[in-house]
């Protein structure tokens, strides 16, 4: 069996049995699955296509709000439900809960695809650092606008319908949903990078003007790739909103300076533009973050900052990039000893 297959199988087995082995860490591990999803979706844009988005977190927030809106809106009047003077004593039967959750997740994913396609029409006029700042602006503005929108609770947010079962059951349900979302994202990007689409994204990254001169449909690839990443981020937002139980715009739904920056830092740490880099980077980053939060409380941000600084100063290409430079043959980068396709006896001199 190939090493990569074994690694994937190992992660899958760990993922499935982890909540039984270490139930106390289930919540933390499900956050890890989301972190991997963040890094993978960011890397589609930043690593593979060269469009460093600082605003991908916006889709996380949009997904969260769309899902919550569907979960509540199916059974109650949303404006009344979120009003501070509400008289609604909201309860959801298990049937209502699961229908709402299911439809909410789908709506979040599809809704984010549409939002990404609309944003594409003006943001892809920007390149390089301007695109990064433009997308950051979108994420910040989205948080502020939603914070001012009374209909969906404005700054005081929305309480998500309460899970009808025992406390442990909810953690377990969302654990497996996040695992499933992460695996889905991983398999999707792995497949995508093996197609013509994947190579077109790389071409846009390396030289967009050349790609245009060669007739590549650059806008089509850029906007749809962003839509793909928004699809998965929308799902992640929908799940995270339900895991926390209460959502509000600035800290939970549009955490630009935490999750929004983490997704970039994780992809850079593992090695952007590679399949496994974001997975590795997210895992390492999350472990360091959790360990310092436990043992270095008060210094946790310093430790995290130090990790990022070390990464961008000494290991700009990330762990996977560093490995590819150290062992190029293992990554298939080698000179062929044959001079021509016919592979006759001629050897390279």
């Amino acid at each position: 069996m190939k090493k990569e297959t074994m690694l994937q199988l190992g992660i899958l087995i760990f993922g499935v049995i982890a909540p039984m082995l270490i139930p106390s860490l289930s919540f933390q591990i499900s956050i890890l699955w989301l972190m991997i999803l963040f890094a993978l979706t960011w890397d589609m844009m930043g690593g593979q296509m060269g469009y460093n988005s600082l605003g991908n977190i916006a889709f996380f927030g949009f997904g969260m709000y769309i899902c919550a809106g569907v979960q509540v809106g199916l059974y109650y009047d949303l404006a009344e439900y979120t009003s501070p003077f509400t008289t609604i004593n909201a309860t959801f039967t298990p049937d209502q809960y699961y229908t709402g959750l299911f439809l909410g997740i789908i709506a979040a994913a599809v809704g984010c695809v549409f939002i990404a396609l609309i944003l594409s029409t003006f943001l892809f006029g920007l390149r390089g650092p301007y695109f990064a700042i433009g997308t950051l602006g979108v994420a910040l503005a989205a948080g502020e606008l939603i914070g001012a929108w009374e209909y969906i609770g404005a700054g005081s947010g929305i309480s998500i319908p309460v899970h009808p079962g025992e406390a442990g059951e909810k953690t377990q349900l969302f654990y497996y949903l996040t695992l499933f979302a992460m695996i889905g994202t991983f398999l999707f990007v792995k497949w995508l990078y093996g197609t013509r689409w994947g190579l077109a994204m790389n071409a846009i990254r390396d030289d967009e003007e050349k790609a245009e001169a060669m007739g590549i449909h650059t806008y089509r690839y850029k906007s749809m790739t962003w839509a793909f990443s928004a699809f998965f981020l929308g799902i992640s937002g929908a799940l995270f909103g339900n895991m926390t139980g209460f959502i509000e715009p600035l800290e939970v739904a549009f955490p630009t300076v935490t999750f929004g920056i983490f997704m970039v830092a994780m992809a850079l740490l593992g090695g952007k533009g590679t399949l496994w880099g974001p997975v590795l980077g997210a895992t390492l980053f999350h472990v360091v973050k959790e360990v310092t939060w436990t043992y270095l409380l008060g210094w946790q941000w310093v430790a995290l900052g130090l990790l990022i600084v070390l990464n961008v100063v000494f290991f700009q290409e990330g762990i996977m990039g560093w490995m590819a430079r150290k062992w190029p043959e293992r990554f298939g980068l080698s000179v062929d000893s044959h001079m021509s396709r016919s592979k006759q006896s001629e050897e390279a001199s």
Binding site: L199, N202, D206, A211
Partner: peptide
């Protein structure tokens, strides 16, 4: 102008 981070075969394929 070539796609400088990809190998030659990939440059050709795209």
């Amino acid at each position: 102008r070539i796609y400088s981070k990809m190998d030659c075969v990939r440059n050709m394929l795209i």
